[in-house]
Amino acid sequence: MPVLNTRVNGKTVQKEIKPTTLLVAFLRDGMGLTGTHVGCDTSQCGACVVHVDGVAVKSCTMLALQAEGADIQTIEDLAGDDGTLHPVQQAFQKHHALQCGFCTPGMIMASVALLSANPRPSPAQIRHGLEGNICRCTGYQNIVNAVLDASGQLGG
């Protein structure tokens, strides 16, 4: 079996994997990082969004072997070592931007990528930036509010 050499959440990883292994399966089953979710498994819902070399990708539509030499970041790596939540995670909590929470890891990883490319997005830009992520509980208003707040645009 081929060997994958990559970095996951800052740690070097070397692992034998089957070529058919998807990145999301490698993260969940191979690394035990189950924060990344599989929703649709057809690259529509965005629950599986992780960062590969700093950009958001749908990990259900990427082979793990395509991440050779890459730097992968998952939702598990956002909080500080002392458990302090990332500002986007805090904003999601504060604004009730989740209900069942299934879409949340993908929503947050997508929002973090959005804010790193555009630190002060308009509500329309947030909606456009999150169009690859589907939430079936709360609707999107509180998610947009959370991202606005995380970008420092809500005041108070």
Partner: peptide, 9 residues
Amino acid sequence: IGDPHVRNR
């Protein structure tokens, strides 16, 4: 094309 994550790949 697609969505931001699809456009990245």
